[in-house]
Design a protein around this nucleic acid. Sequence first.
DNA 1: TAGATTGTTAATCGATTAACAATC
DNA 2: TAGATTGTTAATCGATTAACAATC
Lengths: 206, 206
Amino acid sequence: MASHPSIPDIVIGRLPIYLRALNQLMQQGKTITSSHELGQRLGISSAQIRKDLSHFGEFGKQGTGYQISHLQAQLKQILQVDREWQMIIVGAGDLGRALAHYRGFVSRGFRVVAAFDIDPARLGKSGDVEVLHTSQMQDFIKQHNIKIAMIAVPAENAQEVCDQLVAAGVRAILNYAPITLSVPNNVHVQYIDPVMHLQRMTYYLE
Amino acid sequence: MASHPSIPDIVIGRLPIYLRALNQLMQQGKTITSSHELGQRLGISSAQIRKDLSHFGEFGKQGTGYQISHLQAQLKQILQVDREWQMIIVGAGDLGRALAHYRGFVSRGFRVVAAFDIDPARLGKSGDVEVLHTSQMQDFIKQHNIKIAMIAVPAENAQEVCDQLVAAGVRAILNYAPITLSVPNNVHVQYIDPVMHLQRMTYYLE
DNA sequence: TAGATTGTTAATCGATTAACAATC
DNA sequence: TAGATTGTTAATCGATTAACAATC
């Protein structure tokens, strides 16, 4: 139901961008928008936005455009963020704690329910999030049926942590360690590495 | 010299991935690799890697492959990270401080030289990095000829901060605020929004 | 109605891949 | 030499865009 097999991944990748722009328009008090307005804001052609959306249904009205609240609800449903996903964080260093404290998850469909670290000095509450010992991680994942994890450990330990997560049932990993992980086909990985973004920009500088 | 105008941006975006993989191979003590080995690790075809590299020159040897140290040096030069770029961080909340403490920048060509915040309670040293008041930001950028900044302020303030950065001379921005920024054509922006990555994966879950 | 914008088709554009001569 | 791998060309594949009938 939720996933149509033939939709290109690159299209899926743009849906969160559209959703975020709709949130912003809504906060500005707008109720209606058009593919043209959306495209202008995002630097994407209006044709592409209409084409992308047409993979999933007809959400607009000729002559008028899109009702923001409706399109927003539809995109949330398509992306399956019309619910709340429970996540864990592995690694409670600076980055892991910053993620644990981040206020922006809940309003967009995600909740950090625990963090894990091997260093006993880091255990206990960090903000609202309990930091537990890594030895409890796999049991926790199984008991709470956790499907999503964020990896915020040093690069040297990331693959090992990843293997443990996958073995326990995690199916989506957001990896902050600067290495490419190897995972089975049924596990999804996304990467966040600020240095790669910076290196991409320095090419163009001067 | 550094930037050939006709090379597709998507190719530039893969160079940092190759560079990171080479770092990893080198750490494992390897000295030679091939497009096939590299591709296998990264989930990219060997043909694509060779094609990408061919935009910039001939870095391999038939029958042998690539000398890792040489290819690494070449990629660093192409990306202009064979030097050290000075960066600033705007926003010294959890995220800004985590970035200020991050040890992974220097070895890959970047150094955080200051952070800025409007909250007087956050000023002073945070690890090795001095947090200054935002009112001093534009002077600092001009004096130190800063070209790169990271934005780690709330979404509501991000566009305003961005405008100030651009006006002072910043030409590359790594934006952690979950909004699309509007900038002149000669300014580069990259976005990091963990929620967008998560939403991209939930589409495929279940 | 007149104006605007959708959803969709067909054309264009660009990126990826397969294949192979060159050569280490 | 025999085996391997590059750099490059041509073919394929897929994504983007232009254009427009439909229609609100």
